[in-house]
Design a binder for these strands. Structure first.
Lengths: 333, 333
DNA sequence: CCGCAAACTGTTACCGATAACATGTTACCG
DNA sequence: CGGTAACATGTTATCGGTAACAGTTTGCGG
């Protein structure tokens, strides 16, 4: 178990001080070009590996950005993460990913854990947190960005959209088509907060438009997926056609419902309209295409990265960015 | 800009040495229970946040495990990541995720970057790496696990399956059904190495079974998605039905092709069989269900975590785990 | 009341890089 | 040839925990 190679070792090998090695390896121009080349060469030969931990410790800058998502297993969340990642790795930042499984208590726990790593910023999906988590975040004295939502009482910066307003787009569209008897399909109330906002948006808009009360169908615990959407239909069989339209909390759920309808011989959209949410690939490629709402997932990641760049450049006043949402007409409504 | 609260500060507050604070906060039994409680209380009151960076630096144990995936935006890869994550966060390990965008050069770069963080292990998807990356990894003296493949010349541990053999299952099935004129739809040769192995498996098996040469259709640069699958059909219109079967590199591609066929009035499976790969939700929920191969993505993550636990417990002899693959019959073949 | 173990707490040095400051060396000017 | 700027390198202290070792106190048997 030989000790690791350090700058000290490289310095000894070239008969110089560790400080010069440090400078040379960072490409500091004040070190003579020839010396710089030599040091890099020797470091390579010795198999020297830079120690970011030591650097983070000494400079008190970790180069980490913490990101908390409900789940990584969601094409839209993954898209946001990718946007962030692409934008930030260029700046030498490394993302620390945590998955809350749609639970604020888990989020609180992860916030605590991740803050011990001294991240330079933290990005949270959603605007709802435990009181303890809020307190920790306020004390942390690092930039906080809440995404995918427009929280009434933000912790710092915001890059998101109104889930309720986006859901309203769907209901208004259905009402224009003359659909009156709606059902909303989503996860059990509680965990999925963005889904909950969408549900509230649907109920409120329907009421405002004078439609009959919207039936709320519980598809199971979050995260709800294609299979849940299919199961909702399978359980109710043709009785589902008593509704005019099924407003699903996400495209995968809508897709599951749509395909189960096909199996049962329920005609979409003639017997029943189905709408999704999120503008996932599956909504676009599906035949028929699913009516949905685009939420600009990748853009949220990019814009959040932009906010961070601003903050690191000194512009620390809180930003509030609404990326909006957009109705995408398909063939299922 | 007040200095951060350290153990030293807590120690001063309770009039004890930092060492006792350190022990107390870690729950060391040798510290008097009452003292321990007091210290935790005071630490909380002062808003003390433990510094993992300092710990990692002092103990030379980072608590990181590096994970390199081609993309996070793939339900199966995400599933593997989730399996890993769930299994390892219990052990206090934090995953460092890197995305190679299906390129070995990018992998090499990321390996270099991530190793500077002193990960305690590194997990790579795939068995093909640049020579430089191999060298770095061999010198790193940390456990290496290659997943999702069975590399001929492994760097360390292996948890995967044979993509070629899995692809063979599909071709054998199609041959049994009397399909002879096959086309393979995948990403352009080069980047997607797992896809390449599948292609080779398809070509070799077809040849071995005496089928006519398999046409290789290039769906575009990796990663290929639903849209690429749809585009392949759209470009060729009804001419695609000259084939007996379309062997797609993944379920999303198959799904895209299937739905575009529906648009064009091509009957699947009567006019054309379509098969996927990966046993994604979309294959199961789709109507018709897509014939595919299950690759046990989550299990790969779990088993890899198991390997790590073994290694950290001292059992360092290289493990070779073949999780296998399984033909899943659908309604598209 | 001595001796010794058990229970608890303290001291010192160190992990590897680098900011801040100091020093040495060369080059060029009047 | 003295003086000074420009360039190149070195010294020292430090970031916040913790391993290893070193006390100190208490309790109890003999």
């Amino acid at each position: 178990m030989t000790r690791r190679v350090t700058m000290r070792d490289v310095a000894r090998a070239v008969d110089m001080s560790p400080m010069t090695v440090s400078r040379a390896l960072r490409g500091d121009e004040t070190v003579n070009a020839k010396t710089r080349g030599l040091i890099k060469q020797v470091a390579d030969d010795l198999g020297y590996v830079y120690d970011s931990t030591a650097q983070a410790f000494r400079t008190q800058k970790s180069g980490f950005v913490a990101v908390l998502l409900p789940s990584i297993n969601n094409a839209n969340f993954a898209e946001t993460f990718r946007g962030l990642s692409n934008a930030l790795t260029g700046d030498g930042l490394q993302l620390l990913l945590g998955s809350t499984n749609y639970r604020v208590e888990k989020e609180e726990e992860l916030v605590g854990q991740l803050l011990t790593r001294n991240p330079e910023a933290i990005i949270l999906m959603g605007g709802h947190h435990t009181a303890a988590a809020r307190k920790i975040l306020e004390n942390a004295k690092i930039p906080v960005i809440e995404i995918w939502d427009l929280p009434p009482d933000p912790l710092g910066h915001v890059v998101g959209f109104s889930n309720a307003d986006a859901a309203a787009l769907i209901v208004e569209h259905l009402a224009r088509q003359g659909r009156r008897k709606l059902a909303f399909v989503g996860a059990s109330a509680g965990a999925d907060l963005r889904g909950g906002s969408r549900r509230e948006g649907v109920l409120a808009t329907a009421a405002a438009l004078g439609l009959p009360p919207v039936e709320v169908i519980d598809a199971g615990e979050a995260p709800v997926s294609m299979r849940h959407g299919a199961a909702v239909i399978a359980e109710r069989d043709r009785a589902i056609a008593e509704f005019d339209a099924l407003v699903c909390v996400s495209d995968p759920v809508a897709f599951g419902a749509l395909n189960e309808c096909r199996r049962l011989g329920i005609n979409v959209p003639d017997d029943l309209a189905i709408t999704g949410f999120g503008h996932f690939d599956v909504a676009v490629v599906s035949s028929p295409r699913i009516t949905t709402v685009s939420v600009h997932a990748a853009e949220i990641g990019l814009r959040a990265a932009g906010v961070l760049r601003d903050v690191f450049a000194g512009k620390s006043d809180p930003q509030w960015i609404d990326v909006g949402a957009e109705l995408i007409l398909g063939e299922t409504s």
